[in-house]
Design a protein around this nucleic acid. Sequence first.
DNA 1: AATGATTGATGTGTTACTCGCATGAATGTT
DNA 2: AACATTCATGCGAGTAACACATCAATCATT
Lengths: 297, 297
Amino acid sequence: MNVELDDLKAFVKTAEMRSFRAAAETIHLSQPALTRRIQKLEATLGVPLLERTTRRIELTAVGRDFLPRARRLLDDLETSLLTVQEIAQRRSGQVNIACIPTAAYYFLPDVISAFSEAYPSIRVRIVDAGANEVLQGVLNREVDFGITLTGADDPDVAFEPLVEEPFMLACRNDHPLAEQEVVQWEDLAEHRFITVGRASGNRLILDLGLAKSGFRPRWFYEVQHLSTSLGLVEAGLGVAALPKMSLPSGPHPLIASRPLVDPVVMRTVGLVRRPGARLSPASERFHEMLLTRWRTP
Amino acid sequence: MNVELDDLKAFVKTAEMRSFRAAAETIHLSQPALTRRIQKLEATLGVPLLERTTRRIELTAVGRDFLPRARRLLDDLETSLLTVQEIAQRRSGQVNIACIPTAAYYFLPDVISAFSEAYPSIRVRIVDAGANEVLQGVLNREVDFGITLTGADDPDVAFEPLVEEPFMLACRNDHPLAEQEVVQWEDLAEHRFITVGRASGNRLILDLGLAKSGFRPRWFYEVQHLSTSLGLVEAGLGVAALPKMSLPSGPHPLIASRPLVDPVVMRTVGLVRRPGARLSPASERFHEMLLTRWRTP
DNA sequence: AATGATTGATGTGTTACTCGCATGAATGTT
DNA sequence: AACATTCATGCGAGTAACACATCAATCATT
């Protein structure tokens, strides 16, 4: 049934204006072209919709039935198209990313500053989540891309490394281990160790890294987030192994950082996105800026 | 916004089948032609709807939003087109006319018989109504055309006369007036006269016809329909002036008919239709058959 | 890792369709 | 009867949509 939207528009406008000539003018068509459109619609339907002479136009019974339906169809289409374009525009005016907390404050501030300076009207929405949640968010297209750990990846996403860093010891300045320049993992055996839960990507990496050495630290405290670990260390409740980027970078009144060796456990943080994902230009640009600023050479 | 229905169909089918090639085959298009349609839709909306590689097709976020809307639009259009065609087909399979009662049984039986023999599947629907209702029915397109009186016409309808006939006296066989071969209107003055209401077309014609003679019958009974008049005459309650076609055509055990003169009041019954009205072929044919069978030479 | 089958995208030429212009016939109005 | 205006038709021009040929990309298989 080869009906076209322009046919419906011609019919609706003609029925409303009661004039082929006037309707044609309104929709920027010549009168013969409009007449042909109406004739084509009537031929396709197999029934006249309008009764007309050179001086008078009226709807047929079928035309009267069809007119509100045609109007509704055209209205619904216009609404749909406008809605879709609004969604698209809203999406293209916003960057959505998911990020593990330890990386958010390390990677993003500089790049966000530069990005917002270049694109003042583009908003950046950061979903702060664990490594697995970041991955799910990307897979489910809830966000454009993510910043997460190597271990938490998936065959259906592409990983682009940004930074590789070691886990280090975090303890209070007045802790006995703070007197050593370098701490070995086995040195921790005699101290209360604060760890993160099994669901954490960091925990997975640590477990895998330590498996080779035969040493298994005895966890005394288990928390959900690394940032809570740091809080407990500061409170003097124990020591923790934390990624370097989550530690204070300079001298700290309470917290000391020491290299953890034998083994040195490394983690890689990078960008994950779905291959072939068509990001908005803004998201593509932000993604590029992150790579440019942070990519490991 | 130059979106076309074929664009929507291409998009919906491709999203459902997850294959350009397969979708193209289904809607009888080549794969490049379908690809171009999808590209045109995406260009018009200014946003991609599908992410695709040569081996994998998925909806974008905007595409996922748009797909149910596009489906609904196409479904609504198809429903509308089928409904319109069904109405048109039903109308073209049926003749609808309105007819004053006195004429229905006089004009229609023969023509209906001939018509139904020629067109066995076409149904004929007769709306039995007063002269004014017949006219309204035609003007409001509730019926295709009507059979009514001259007096009940309108500048917007065309009248084609079928039969011109006189009003005659109807009385019981044993009534004194039955003894006269011809009755004059003034003879009715001494007898109870049964008339029809002022809303009746017949009443209007009678009033106008008698106005010239100066004689005004004194109504003793007033009824709504002529057929009721005949019933009261038969019951011996009085006499009535009725159109010839509504009287028994041969000898009747109870009812006598006599010419009414001085004046002779005539009425014309004919077809009314809207000029330029596009009737279905069946209605046109029936209309023609009525004219052929009954038209006054 | 190499190879092959398959698919979406692009270039190109052809065809069909839509358009505007010119004009005719019909229709109300004066 | 004459005139102005409108809908319908004939016709030529231009454009859009199509299929075909082909390329590049992508997975699956070996």
